[in-house]
């Protein structure tokens, strides 16, 4: 995974990213940042809430209860169904924050029923770091790095 520069870190706390709300609701949780796109079908295990794609930077990492920050959705049209299963099996992320709007990612966020924001003024994958505490406001369309 890429390590943000010290300069980027210096401005990070208190930073507000402004985008468009995709799914309403407000949640505050720890961020998990994926440097690469995520597959649903064949890419995650809904029973465990983990990424399982072999060559993925986050292979084996659990996203349950995290704010999942990622560039976008890739792969099969089963994407939304797999993320819906995480909700039904109790392993869903707390919120979604993604760079690129696609039908897979938006429908996936809607049926996972977690606050979601996209279409930012800056790339959230570059600004937010894994372990940051962020507040995702799907009503206002903002993501704030609070700690």
């Amino acid at each position: 995974m890429s390590v943000p520069s010290t300069e980027a870190r210096a401005v990070a706390r208190g930073t507000v990213l402004r985008g468009r709300g995709i799914v309403p609701g407000i949640v505050r949780a720890e961020a998990l940042v994926s440097p690469e796109t995520i597959s649903g079908w064949g890419g995650i295990d809904p029973a465990q809430g983990t990424i399982i794609e072999r060559r993925h930077a986050l292979c084996g990492v659990c996203f349950t209860g995290k704010v999942l920050v990622f560039p976008g959705a890739k792969g099969s049209s089963g994407w939304s169904g797999f993320f819906q299963s995480t909700r039904l099996l109790g392993t869903a992320p707390a919120a979604m924050v993604f760079t690129t709007v696609t039908t897979k990612a938006v429908l996936g966020a809607v049926v996972t029923r977690v606050p979601t924001v996209s279409e930012f003024d800056r790339d959230p994958v570059q600004v937010i770091r894994t372990g940051d505490i962020v507040e995702v406001d799907g009503d206002a369309g903002t993501v704030t790095i609070v700690g």
């Binding site: 049209s77 089963g78 897979k104 809607v110």
Partner: peptide, 25 residues
């Protein structure tokens, strides 16, 4: 339509218009 290989066929070869839909849509 869903199923990525069917969607790309429908758009490209047939000239119908579909996004890559999902189970709920």
């Amino acid at each position: 339509w869903m199923e990525s290989s069917a969607v790309v066929y429908a758009n490209s070869v047939i000239g119908a218009k579909s996004n890559c839909e999902g189970t709920a849509s």
